[in-house]
Design a protein around this nucleic acid. Structure first.
Length: 273
DNA sequence: GCTCAGTTTCCTGTTT
DNA sequence: TAAACAGGAAACTGAG
């Protein structure tokens, strides 16, 4: 299923979010998407489906949202369609993560058109591949505490009371307490081979079977991401084996360095994109 | 401070 | 013989 845009791009830009008609009693907070992760001339209206998917993944990584909590197939659309979605469309398509995604795309659309307060969020820029996905963290009392109630219009399922807000925050973060999981890191390499040619490759894309080509290099990259210079493939593979029990990976008997995504791994299928 | 999830580290034994 | 696999056990880490 995918969400059909309910308004046009132009009407959306003026009706759903603007610096003047939103929530004047609340200071605007930026997460820095427009300034850090996407080039200034990157206009979401002109994104391809793949770029939409990349954006989706990046926002989820930034906010440490479990990828399995957002049905990627709901975002089977190009940038123009994405920009045409209103707040309710995002709620419909992404559930509790909808407000965050809505805020992100709105900010990108409005990039440079309104004053933002920088410096409220900690960004850890890195130049290598690993920063492409999720090396952004927030201080305590992070964006969920400030963003969600502000973005949410009246009569939305978005949390408003402190208790609900707290449980929402927990729901979003509990699954991923320390940023991107290893399997998501692996998946991202597979889905972005242009960034890491020759590290891991698909053996059977439709079945989710993949093979490590440079196991030590992947381990090194993982260690770099976790700021752990002593990471080895042996340790990484131990963590991979723990995924068997959880159904995130399945064993591929008799083949070295070959793994397969299991039923609980999300976001790797072409149909998810 | 406690609990929990998700690793990380170390280890022994087995398979390729 | 080396590299990789398998899995137990304990420790670690960050977040709620």
């Amino acid at each position: 299923m995918s969400v059909t845009p309910s308004t046009t791009l132009d009407s959306q830009l003026t009706a759903t979010w603007s610096p003047t008609n939103s929530y004047p009693d609340v200071p605007m907070v930026t997460s820095g998407y427009s300034n850090r992760l996407w080039p200034p001339d990157s206009q979401p209206q002109f994104w391809s489906k793949f770029q939409v998917w990349e954006w989706l993944q990046q926002v989820m990584d930034m906010h440490q949202i479990d990828a399995s909590s957002v049905p990627f197939q709901n975002f089977d659309m190009d940038g123009h369609q994405l920009c045409s979605l209103n707040y309710q469309d995002f709620i419909h398509a992404a559930g509790s993560a909808g407000p965050i995604l809505f805020h992100s795309i709105t900010e990108l659309k409005w990039s440079g058109q309104y004053h933002v307060e920088l410096g409220q969020l900690e960004i850890k820029p890195e130049l290598d591949f690993s920063c492409s996905f999720s090396d952004v963290s927030y201080p305590p009392g992070d964006i969920y505490d400030t963003l969600i109630p502000h973005v949410a219009p009246v009569a939305s399922p978005t949390p408003s009371s402190p208790d609900i807000k707290r449980s929402f925050s927990r729901q979003v973060k509990k699954h991923n307490p320390r940023g991107t999981h290893l399997w998501e890191f692996i998946r991202d390499i597979l889905l972005n081979p242009e960034r890491n040619p020759g590290l891991i490759k698909w053996e059977d894309r439709t079945e989710g079977v993949f093979r490590f080509l440079k196991s030590n290099a992947v381990a090194e990259l993982w260690g770099k991401k976790k700021n752990n210079s002593s990471m080895t493939y042996e340790k990484l593979s131990r963590a991979m084996r723990y995924y068997y029990k959880r159904g995130i990976l399945e064993r591929v008997d008799g083949r070295r360095l070959v793994y397969k995504f299991g039923k609980n791994a999300r976001g790797w299928r072409e149909s998810d994109m």
